[in-house]
Design a protein around this nucleic acid. Structure first.
Length: 298
DNA sequence: GTCCAGGACTCGC
DNA sequence: GCGAGTCATGGA
């Protein structure tokens, strides 16, 4: 696996911090982490590509597995773009750190995890499924459900004695009956939500580009919450992880509440109004604040 | 057994 | 518009 490309990163980027986040579950099925290298498969121009990314003095090193490298420059650029999106490499975090250093609640998380980026989920359908699965259950169980889902409907790429998974296309899920997902222990409602969004995406009614064109977070949130199964938490989660809003704020998030309790030294979880009030000074960076606060829980 | 997890829907008022 | 009940599984 010869070195193929180095993706330059701006200052305030720490690969190890992003890696620590990526390693939070042994049940993660979309990539594997070994010896500091994150390896995954991706479909690029109709062909499976497998690449590993690791730390590099100038940013992120990307190496391709022999036999699974992009055919041409366009494919190479797509992988580079994917990594830039995945790790949010095009963002200048200086304003956030300026904010965080002066904030009593954020200070510790910001100092402890400097260089961490909001790790994204570039694929819209994948984010929908992940967000819906994550509603109201433990993250650990959500990982188990995602693994079952991917291993049932996704595409396996066997290479180098290992199996890599490509997330299923929305069109493959759009025609399923909810009962099929129920067998995986996904609740009936979530099964309907997943199939419903799969249909919207497969039909082209719902696209990442179309959502991004709305520009405004509030408009996007409205568009998303009009979809059955997508409430405020899920909409903001999508904004944060896929649409890359630095300001999305999943205020109802239980993990956020626990982190705020910890960071603010409270003896109880904050109420929803308190959660909103805490975040007022973070306006513009509430997604980053949330992501950093989450890290306090690990 | 009870409660809680990275919520959202439905219903009654 | 708001509160309470329901959904469903798994771990503490």
């Amino acid at each position: 696996m010869a070195e193929q490309l180095v993706i330059p990163a701006p200052g305030d980027f720490s690969f190890p911090e992003c890696l620590a986040y990526l390693m939070r579950s042994a049940d993660e099925c979309m990539f594997r982490v070994e010896d500091g290298v994150v390896t995954r498969a991706l479909e690029v121009e109709g062909e499976p590509v497998i690449f590993g990314m690791s730390d590099h003095p100038d940013g992120v090193a990307v190496r391709f597995l022999d036999g699974y490298r992009p055919a041409g420059q366009t494919g190479m650029d797509k992988v580079a773009g994917y990594v830039r999106d995945w790790l949010d490499l095009d963002r200048d975090l200086r304003p956030f750190y300026e904010l965080g250093e002066g904030d009593p609640i954020l200070r510790e998380a910001v100092r402890e995890h400097r260089g961490l980026r909001v790790v994204g989920i570039p694929d819209l359908f994948e984010t929908f499924v992940w967000a819906i699965l994550g509603q109201q259950i433990t993250v650990a169980f959500a990982y188990v459900l995602k693994k079952r889902f991917v291993e049932t409907f996704g595409t396996a790429v066997e290479a180098g004695g290992r199996t890599y998974w490509i997330f299923p296309e929305a069109s493959k899920v759009a025609g399923l009956e909810p009962g099929v997902l129920r067998e995986l222990k996904i609740t009936g409602r979530k099964s309907e939500y997943i199939i419903g969004t799969a249909r919207l995406i497969a039909d082209g009614e719902l696209t990442k580009e179309g959502l991004l064109e709305l520009r405004d977070d509030k408009l996007i949130q409205k568009e998303l919450t009009d979809i059955r199964g997508i409430g405020p938490w899920t909409a903001n989660y999508l904004l944060m992880r896929c649409l890359r809003s630095p300001d999305a704020y999943p205020a109802a998030d239980v993990g956020l509440h626990n982190a705020l309790k910890l960071a603010a030294g409270m003896d109880r979880k904050p109420t929803l109004p308190e959660v909103e009030t805490f975040a007022e000074p973070w306006t513009g960076w509430r997604a980053y604040a949330t992501f950093y606060l989450w890290r306090l829980l690990h």
